[in-house]
Design a protein around this nucleic acid. Sequence first.
DNA 1: TTATATAAGACTAAAAAGGTCTTATTAGGA
DNA 2: TCCTAATAAGACCTTTTTAGTCTTATATAA
Lengths: 150, 150
Amino acid sequence: MFQISRKADYAIRGMVYLALKPQDGVASIKDIAGFAEASRAFLAKIFQQFNKMGIVKSYRGTGGGFMLGRPAGDITLLDIVEAVDGPILGNTCLLGKGTCSRDTTCPVHPVWKDVRQELRALLGRVTLERLAGAMPETPEPSGHHNKSQQ
Amino acid sequence: MFQISRKADYAIRGMVYLALKPQDGVASIKDIAGFAEASRAFLAKIFQQFNKMGIVKSYRGTGGGFMLGRPAGDITLLDIVEAVDGPILGNTCLLGKGTCSRDTTCPVHPVWKDVRQELRALLGRVTLERLAGAMPETPEPSGHHNKSQQ
DNA sequence: TTATATAAGACTAAAAAGGTCTTATTAGGA
DNA sequence: TCCTAATAAGACCTTTTTAGTCTTATATAA
């Protein structure tokens, strides 16, 4: 129960990789997937969604790839996890899809609400910057290309 | 992500039902399933597992059924949730099933560990007794049968 | 204009969740 | 003793979700 999806795992590692690059460093999906140990096509799909959500930016064509959509200090695990797998603990009671007839009477309801809040708070406190800073080794310290200088 | 399984939902409601009964009250799976709004066969399977784990006791034959395996104050949401769906956030990193090569180096690892601890602590604090006490109405205040008087 | 990238989305395979059904086994009561 | 009411156990099935591939289009730099 409450398992982390492989998708989230890949996504997080991929994002950490981007955060490790020098400011505005662009990485190809090939490199990112290599680091994250994920299939290229699969990770590409994930990052395409991230692009739409603004947590990464994408560039097509030769020398293209992905880079962080905002500073690593402004992207949290919560952002990533919810971008990948949707909101944590949707407020349904599972039964009676959508609206739960127990909303007001069910004594378990407030417990899940608490759990949800705690979880979100915890993950919201962990930034990519912090994660990248805790990485033991950096990939290619000398940056590939740099989209901000165009 | 981190959704509650329907199984856990059924199980919790079924257990609350048992906790609402007078001390040592036995209820048939039919009654429990009715209250939990779950299929009889499905809930039976869940409760059979609970029986093995000791959080309920079962009695076969006429007048049989299930009752709590220990006082409602000694059974928590954590007990139920982990009995149904297995341990919260198994310590794998998902990749490299079993042992994660990143155990020592991965900076995300300690975060999941924290999350796991928080979650377990939160759920471990909520007893069936408390949940039953917060229920708006009780089912059949006059008990059916009572296995302790045999 | 060609090689190198991502974009988009249809499609598929595998695993997990949710659930049913059948055949024991056990216990109580007529 | 035999019938009925109950759980036990486990094989089986269906649906949904997860994880992933593949193809075609589009953009861009050299």
